[in-house]
Amino acid sequence: MFLQQIASGLALGCVYALIALGFVLIYKATEVVNFAQGEFMMLGAFVALSLMTGAKLPFFLTIFLAVMIMGVFGMVLERMVMRRLVGEPIFALVMFTIGLSIFLRSIAGMVWSTDTFKFPTVFGKSFTQIGSVTISSMDILVVSITAALVIILYLFFKFTDIGIAMEATSQNQFASFLMGISVERVFNLIWAISAMVAAVAGILLAPILFIHKDMGFIGLKAFPAAVLGGFGSIPGAIVGGLIIGLSENLAGVFLPAWVKDVFAYIILIAVLMVRPEGIFGIQEKKRV
């Protein structure tokens, strides 16, 4: 029972982590909190659904195309809108992303209707028994892809030139500009990457969340995960997601029923009181 809840909690935690990753990426490079991250995920899932059931493409091609389309979407969005807002107060950018989330939800409702859809997955529904714990193949897939994504992104930021340029931009935009980094290109790329991660999340989570115009609301749960981990840290997003998923599930079984849904926020408040910068966060020191 206890172990089973831990297994379920880890899988749920990866769901949160995957979405939190998108928040973290954009914030890391641009210091903007993208509140439309959940809607990016929804859009990615709907695009994949259309390719799969409308255009009848094979599964892996569908995923590849959907991720690419979302990447282009992220780039276009940055180029057309976000770039015009560079230098405006962060508040304006955040408000824009909130507006964008409402806009995307409405558009999805018009284009794909307000119904709920099931994504036809090629992964069969099988279960693996490990001791007293049952794990579904879907959960294993979510966990492994999340882990793979984190490793890829981590290596990208650590070792590639453009990754290091992004890291630098996040630390000091002006200085990196003076060092010859094209800040605009960095921003453009980070929006693309973030939208692509969102598309992966959307497709991967479709069997769990189903595809509907409001599926992005799960972002509200992923947001505390990102804050908990320290909002600019990639491993932090994962750890934050796992902590919230685990604690929610354990609280749901061992504590009174109402605790389950507020437990994530209780933990968030507790951690932020002890470590305001989050678990993996680095206290930023800005000299004025």
């Binding site: 029972m1 809840q5 769990i208 409001d214 029923a257 389950k260």
Partner: peptide
């Protein structure tokens, strides 16, 4: 809660 996606703890209970 409305909008929940995970029911593992409720079902286990």
């Amino acid at each position: 809660k409305r909008g929940s996606v995970d029911f593992s703890s409720q079902v286990a209970k």
